[in-house]
Computed example of a mutant assay.
Amino acid sequence: MKIVCLGDSLTECVGVDVRNTWPYMMTQNTNYKYDVINKGIRSDTTFGMLGRLHEDVLSENPNCVILCGGLNDCWFDTPANIIVSNIYAIVKRLEFNGIKTIIGIPPMAFDKDRLGDEFPYKPLGGWEKLDNLVSLYRETLIAICEEYEFSYFDMQEIFNNHSGNLEDLIGEDMIHPNEEGNRCLSEIVYEELMKIYKYNKKRAF
């Protein structure tokens, strides 16, 4: 079984050791029976993922792709419908090649109050517009997944289901999940993977 994780810094898992990334933990969750390849690139957009789909994904001939992206598009003020259309195009291209896709719904990662006024970068459309755009993108992507019956998981769940402080799951940059956050993510992804496997084993794998 080969799985490729295609995404941005949330997939690359910036700020943590390779062995503490959620894609690597996936191999541990499956007792190393699955070959999980991390193709996350920090700052990448859904346009970039479309552009490198053949070289980074199709060339690996995977059984399944875990696709997570869109927050950087939001940062650069790309309309939500365009971001979703890129995700849809990637899923249909993979489907054409007989590859199952699990879509990761990105979390509300950018919090101006948490990041502080000294954060060195500013979103292209401003903080308020970014917050609204990420919310709209999340809602639209979930709606598309449900309408077309695409498999998906919500990365925001690691925060919604956490009983302690959110900072317990976030790294020093105040954006990316730390080791514990990655562990929680690996469990959410694994749960969705097993749901597909048990529900339709022949089609998915």
Rank of each mutant, 00 (worst) to 15 (best):
T30S: 14
Y34F: 08
M26Q: 02
N31T: 09
N29C: 10
D44F: 13
T27Q: 10
W22C: 02
T27S: 07
D44P: 01
T21N: 14
K33G: 12
T45L: 02
M25H: 01
I37A: 05
K39W: 08
Y34S: 03
T30G: 00
T46Q: 07
D35E: 08
M26I: 04
N31C: 15
W22D: 05
N20G: 10
T30L: 10
D17P: 08
V36R: 11
Y24T: 07
N31H: 15
T27G: 03
Y34H: 11
N38T: 06
F47R: 00
V36N: 03
D17H: 12
N38S: 11
T30E: 13
T45V: 02
T46E: 12
Y24M: 12
G15A: 03
K39D: 05
M26F: 14
T21V: 10
D17K: 15
N38L: 07
N20D: 15
R42V: 02
G15M: 05
K39F: 04
Y34I: 01
Q28V: 15
D44A: 09
R19H: 13
Y24H: 13
T27M: 07
T45F: 04
T30M: 06
N20S: 12
I41M: 05
T21C: 07
Y34M: 10
D35K: 07
W22A: 00
G40V: 15
T45K: 09
V36M: 13
G40W: 09
Y32E: 15
R19V: 12
D35T: 14
T45P: 01
K33H: 15
K39E: 05
N38G: 10
D44V: 09
D17Y: 06
D44H: 06
N31I: 12
N31P: 12
Y24N: 13
G40Q: 11
T27R: 04
K33W: 12
V18E: 11
R19C: 13
D17L: 08
R42Q: 09
V16Q: 13
T45R: 08
Y34K: 05
N20C: 14
M25P: 02
N31L: 14
K33L: 07
V36W: 07
T21P: 15
F47M: 00
F47V: 03
P23A: 01
I37V: 07
